[in-house]
Nucleic acid binder design. Structure first.
Lengths: 339, 339
DNA sequence: GTTAGCACTCTACCATCGAGAGTGCTAATA
DNA sequence: TATTAGCACTCTCGATGGTAGAGTGCTAAC
């Protein structure tokens, strides 16, 4: 599936121009703007070929060409590494991360915000999570006679809190004792390991462990941590989303978190930065969109996901660089925490 | 500012009809649809008065009337209690809350989602937070030699986690000891009280306390907890947001959390459910919107906020009932937790 | 293989026009 | 005096048609 030099040059010109101006591009403008030593007639011939081979589409019979998904795909493949972010941008990003380095709820907020800002599209980011969560520490705090707050701290600094209705009363001392005992004996264990252990007679302990296992199981089997989305304001500037209908379906997808996560999951299986274009996304609602997305964290174990969602007509080179840089930064930061 | 019986009836008819169909309403349709024993000519006379008094506006000289902000205001005031939610709806809501009762991260998600669903507009909700946060317990967990995870549990089950770069190495034992000591001596204190205490010589303790105070201060002085927004998909169905420009400014406001929080703060000062219409909101970007919103929690102490944002042309009666019911439910639930 | 020339196609824009909805006014009516 | 019928007037909205311009495809010449 490789094109001759000239076809490729012209296809890239078409895609590039269309990305810039969102208007079908004609043979004349290519001939003049790109310094090719070819007349518009020649370019028309080439474009006819490109259309026949499915790389471009014509909105109507006497209109210029717009890239098909196949055309975008060829364009993206031929980009190579993509242009790196400028030094100033990289420094700006590093600086901002430095500001929030200690509060890692902020990491995903910042990532999503920066991606949105750089790409002028949607930025998405989820916190990293271990595939098999391991307990680090457990706290039990009495709230009312039978109501207890259970705080679970996982390795990697993930935290869950949950209310627990005790079956029988317990003093704060008893709760502390139980929490300490459990923290010690369960340190570093996954939920199947916890489940496999032999539990004595203490009904309190039993109840807490049961709840703990339930929660860890639910968490490990679930999808990602919550996904942060930023940059909605940019999307509405794009001509492809000026009509109401597309915006609405896009919103429906974005608000149906489970759905978006399913899409991301499917993408995340593979390594490295993924670029998924239009119909390559399984879902109808995202036919007009492309994703530039990657997982990060320790391969196969801890995983999070960050990326960019936008119209197919996006700046892929820049988006890829941005996602690459931010994912490496996130990798760096969580390596410190998960040590 | 009270209208005669007839004027009021007609104004309410206009506002009600306009809310239904989003089209300027004419004298003829009022005369026929509302069973008034009046001819369209009479209604035209009344409408001329209403226009002169500023309750309605004409898009152009020979068009029907659309409510002004003043007209909406009168309509809302005259609604009285508003229609209650149906029994089925209330049971459905209660049931859903019951499902997530133990995980209160979910409370705001669910509230926002339900409000959005009921009102077919944006639902917003923030978690409750104490005005003066009080420490409940502190945990210190070694991650690397000089890197420690500090987990702070507040009264009311709010939790913060933060990374701490230690000035000198400390074993997990030392960290535990310090955390226990501090948890005990600081239990129930606010940050000024903590600051006022006399701190011994332990550099570790000093550092932890300093960081703790910084964080609590930052938190107490900040705005609300993060605000959850749901229902974007509904907004785009509304005719007033079909044009690109308004959507974009709305998005800009929604994504600028600090800004939205400022608006909400201003509103939250007062008690009970607030209905804020168009120009009554200080912000230009929200001129086309109305808010139905209320704080909840213990007055003057613990506060959160939930509400509905939509076009001025919203179903106020239903929105008010929904916000009222959900805020009472949230009150109920946090009363249990905060005791 | 490339290009100039030209007829053809399609869109986007503008002006025009008529139907329809709705008003304001006036005069007649209860 | 309050209400109503009647009517001329105003404004929007959608359809229609006509034109300029951009761009193509084809053919013949280079």
């Amino acid at each position: 599936m490789v094109l001759t030099q000239r076809k490729e040059t012209i296809l890239k010109a078409i895609v590039g121009d269309y990305i810039d101006v969102a208007v079908p591009v004609g043979s004349e403008s290519i001939a003049t703007k790109h310094g090719l030593q070819l007349s518009s007639a020649t370019i028309r011939n080439v474009m006819a070929d490109l259309e026949a081979e499915g790389y471009i589409i014509r909105p109507h019979s006497s209109a210029g060409g717009v890239p098909s998904d196949k055309g975008y795909r060829y364009y993206v493949e031929s980009l190579g590494g993509g242009e790196a972010l400028s030094l100033e941008e990289r420094m700006m990003i590093r600086h901002q991360f430095h500001q929030v380095a200690r509060e890692f709820e902020e990491w995903t907020h910042l990532s999503a915000a920066l991606l949105a800002q750089i790409a002028h599209n949607l930025g998405v980011a989820s916190l990293p999570r271990a595939r098999h969560s391991r307990l680090k520490r457990l706290e039990l705090i009495a709230i009312q006679e039978l109501l207890t707050l259970m705080v679970i701290i996982f390795q990697g600094a993930n935290i869950k809190r949950e209310l627990l209705n005790l079956e029988e009363t317990a003093s704060q001392q008893e709760l502390d004792y139980t929490a300490d005992r459990l923290s010690e004996s369960l340190d570093g264990l996954t939920y199947p390991q916890i489940q496999a252990k032999d539990w004595g007679d203490s009904p309190l302990e039993k109840q807490v462990v049961k709840e703990l296992v339930r929660l860890m199981q639910w968490q490990d089997e679930g999808d990602y941590e919550e996904l942060h989305v930023d940059g909605l304001r940019h999307i509405f500037g794009q001509p492809e989303f000026s009509s109401g209908e597309r915006v609405r379906t896009l919103m429906e997808v974005l608000e149906d978190k489970s759905f978006l996560q399913r899409v991301l999951q499917q993408i995340y299986q593979s390594k490295g930065i993924q670029v998924v274009i239009g119909s390559e996304i399984r879902d109808d609602a995202l036919q007009h969109c492309s994703l530039v997305i990657t997982g990060y964290g320790f391969p196969g174990d801890i995983k999070g996901v960050i990326g960019i969602i936008g119209p197919k007509r996006m700046n892929y080179a820049r988006s890829i660089s941005a996602v690459r840089y931010l994912s490496s930064l996130m990798d760096e930061m969580i390596t410190e925490v998960y040590g």
